[in-house]
Amino acid sequence: MFQRVYDASGASVAVTIDGKPVQAREGDTVAAAMLAAGYETCRTTPVSEAPRGPYCMMGVCFECLVTIGSVGNRQGCLVRVQAGMRIETQHGKRVLGR
């Protein structure tokens, strides 16, 4: 779990995670917003469906892959939140046609 340190500033940005409304902060990446909202797991793996969460936060590990809007496998740590953004966790292998 991650929480804001007491002197952190920033305006709220409303997004949804798996359909649930979440208040992120301006400047948050999707991965940061998920950790702040208590989502430690952002996907389960295609190989064994093991839970995974963000690991490096800088674009190299690809653990924070999520679906943003309708596009799957986005690196959550490289995309900043925008008002109205729909973020979805991913589960196992990609299903064709989705």
Binding site: A8, R25, T29
Partner: peptide
């Protein structure tokens, strides 16, 4: 690979970019 295990750099990035610290 367990969620909740991250790099130290990741924690520093969360602090710098989002003012977030582990709780």
């Amino acid at each position: 690979t367990l969620p909740g295990v991250m790099t130290t750099g990741a924690a520093q990035i969360l602090l710098k970019s989002s003012g977030l610290a582990a709780q």
